[in-house]
Amino acid sequence: MKQITLTVANLQETEKFGRDLGRYLLPNTIIGLNGPLGAGKTHLVKAIAEGLNIPNSASVTSPTFGLIHEYPSRLMIYHFDVYRLPNEEAFVDLGAYEYYEMGGVCLIEWADRVKNHLPEDRIEIHITPVDEQQRSIQVVASGTISETILERFAEKLNGSD
């Protein structure tokens, strides 16, 4: 398991973090996003999608109602939101396990609610609002793919300081 924690002062810094992370993602990356309403989960997904060279990041919108949005980019992006699901079984019924292995990137908002059905190899991002602008972001990676990504990302992060 690897872990980093950083503090971002505002939305622009959150976006930079997301874009940078997006560049390092590999096929079959699973990222769980957690944080209260208004923490900026969807915003972060948009930024990660930009890091994955999505042609038009305006197409990244909240999947709360649609449940899964799909966006073509360097890797196919599957953007989940489990906020509205009545239980974990509904998440499995969505075909979650199939999506994990489709060679793309799965980004799951409110992932804590389905933690029994997240793969072992995954990145978990916890966003904690400090105030209206500032956020504390904790990134935890477990498993080979996820740890590799976080290692490379952390190297870049330290290198650019």
């Binding site: 969807t42 915003h43 948009k46 305006a58 919108t61 909240s62 709360t64 109602f65």
Partner: peptide, 10 residues
């Protein structure tokens, strides 16, 4: 054009 984040109903 549409919403860039949340839909109105959401």
């Amino acid at each position: 054009g549409g919403t860039r984040d949340d839909a109105a109903g959401e």
